[in-house]
Amino acid sequence: MSAVISINEVGKRYIMGTQKVYALRTVTLDIEENEYVAIMGPSGSGKSTLMNLIGCLDTPTKGEYLFKGESVGKMNDNQLAEIRNREIGFVFQTFNLLPRYSSLKNVELPLVYSGVPGSERQRRAQEALDHVGLGDRVHHKPNELSGGQRQRVAIARALVTKPSIILADEPTGNLDTKTGYEIMALFAELHRGGNTIILVTHEPDIAEYAHRIIRLRDGRIESDEVNANPRQPEAELAAQ
């Protein structure tokens, strides 16, 4: 297996007024293809900063970040946009669907930015929505869907470009417990299908679904362990 993400002594420092704020001190970690990783930590631990760096939304102020061997630190805005478009599927806590768009249009959006023509776009978006079990909700707008359904649309949108990693930031934070199980079951299924999944959360019981748990504290990695016994969302769903 090859490392999709290779982070070497990476740090991020912000300058606020005259003060330097270290959001991330020094972090070194590799993530391989088809891993299921949870990044955990309390607020202020630097996990959001790390997620932004991994997601190529931001660049580090020190160290080197290689995404599939390419150095992200040296990329300009357009190159970062390109790599986000092609390689990373984002799933947010608040779903972040565009309210005026139907499910199908929302899922098509990343393909618009990679220049896929209309009919091909529709076909692939439909496929992704079928995959998350919303094949019959393509023309619904976000406000006509339940929270769980919205998150499924968001996951379909993350999947549609067939990215190297899926980066999920508190994906169950805005959902009730049962719907949360359903979403975690979907992630488990995607993982089995070969996807690389990075879960960012502050909830230990959500992190338990991942196969590897990285704990952050004060901008440093506190622990990086294999989770030998990940929780099985399908079984928990069935038990309910």
Partner: peptide, 16 residues
């Protein structure tokens, strides 16, 4: 602004 953020996360360049 938020929509801009989402679009950028999904790969929109400045030009877009």
């Amino acid at each position: 602004k938020r929509e801009i953020g989402v679009r950028k996360a999904l790969g929109a360049r400045r030009r877009s």
